[in-house]
Nucleic acid binder design. Structure first.
Lengths: 204, 204
DNA sequence: ATATTTGGATACATATATGTATTTCAATAC
DNA sequence: GTATTGAAATACATATATGTATCCAAATAT
């Protein structure tokens, strides 16, 4: 597994990453509240010592984990929206984005978990909302760009459109996760398509 | 507190209710995974003995709690949708419903918690989805009624419309809870109004 | 009145959590 | 090569959880 002899910095970074990865896995499985520090280090193959040497506590690690994930998400976002100059398919794009960005259900669950935790813990909420706001800003930027190019006017401020679009995409995805039978892939897509489409038409 | 001498049945029902109420409170505060049986009984002023005498375990209690809450929600639903014969304001109605039905944030958090738990636990998922499906059926019924009366045709099967509308309403509410500053009451309402309105127009 | 049931408290055995204090051993510095 | 540093393990003290087994007192039945 470990290929070359690591120096301190590298070694520390490695365990840190291992802990984060393990945390992601185990939190997705058991929920944040239901996950103990012990669970995390066990999954990662370390001990509690390593954990407390790297993080202040569970909250701290969680935010760190989300930050990493968020960075990845932005990469996907830019990839999806940069690859084309044709702006007419905002719906498709955003759906594709959410299809890609939550590449697995665990990830979607993780963010739901985070939001829920945020509702209950003010300090955590503040930090999480920095990430979420950044998300809104990016989507919002895309909405603006879209309207510039199509010469239309958004029916609401771009940021509010972003809030709605994000909410919709996420919750349909989530509904699908909760009930994959009733809300199967096809249904989820139809619903998203209709809702996105309708809202876009409203702006012409 | 206790007014009259209770017989066994009544007494049992009373503790049961007390436990359920306490659980709702404490789960909303700490999350399901983060809540111990001990927490629940402490809040209710009983002991673990009472708990295990009334429920098989935490999952069992949780479903029971949701079932009760669900029943209440349906009452609100009917109240909101029965009070008028004017069917033209589906959006208003549904928004009003979601405004009323999740009369406090705790309740909304509780259902999110439940969904999240369901994603991870198949047995629980089955039972939760019975409740959610029933919800869809009711909203769906309203959508149908709406289209009958307005002589329009839904752009998607009524049930799929219901899925989308519920997802939207819930997630905007949730977004508001997570970030009450950015997604304040006014923003949430504007977004909901626009999205609902657009979708409804799509059906004409 | 006495016997029986049973809801819920108490006791028990065991398992798991937390956070800090201390130790160890490899990586750096000298 | 020896000294120093620091990441992670171990040890420790304490707290909290779980589920069952047992007990008790109030509510029924006889």
């Amino acid at each position: 597994m470990v290929r070359k002899r690591l120096n301190r910095e590298e070694s520390r970074a490695q365990t840190r990453q291992a802990l984060l990865a393990a945390a992601g896995k185990v939190i997705a499985k058991r929920g944040f509240g239901g996950t103990s520090v012990e669970d995390i280090v066990a999954e990662a193959g370390y001990t509690r010592g390593a954990f407390y040497s790297n993080f202040k506590g569970k909250d701290d690690l969680f935010i760190e984990l989300l930050r990493d994930d968020h960075a990845e998400m932005l990469e996907v976002f830019h990839e999806v929206f940069r690859t084309t100059s044709d702006m007419h398919d905002l719906g498709d794009r955003l759906r594709s984005f959410y299809g890609q960005v939550y590449r697995n259900n665990d990830q979607c669950a993780l963010w739901m978990e985070a939001r829920l935790h945020a509702v209950r813990h003010a300090a955590f909420r503040t930090r999480l909302n920095q990430l979420i706001d950044e998300n809104y800003t990016h989507v919002s930027g895309f909405v603006e760009r879209y309207h510039e190019l199509t010469g239309t006017k958004p029916p609401l401020p771009a940021r509010e459109m972003a809030i709605g679009l994000c909410a919709l995409a996420e919750s349909v995805k989530f509904a699908h996760m909760v009930n994959p039978v009733q809300v199967n892939e096809a249904v989820a897509n139809r619903v998203l398509e209709l809702f996105f489409g309708s809202v876009m038409q409203a702006s012409e």
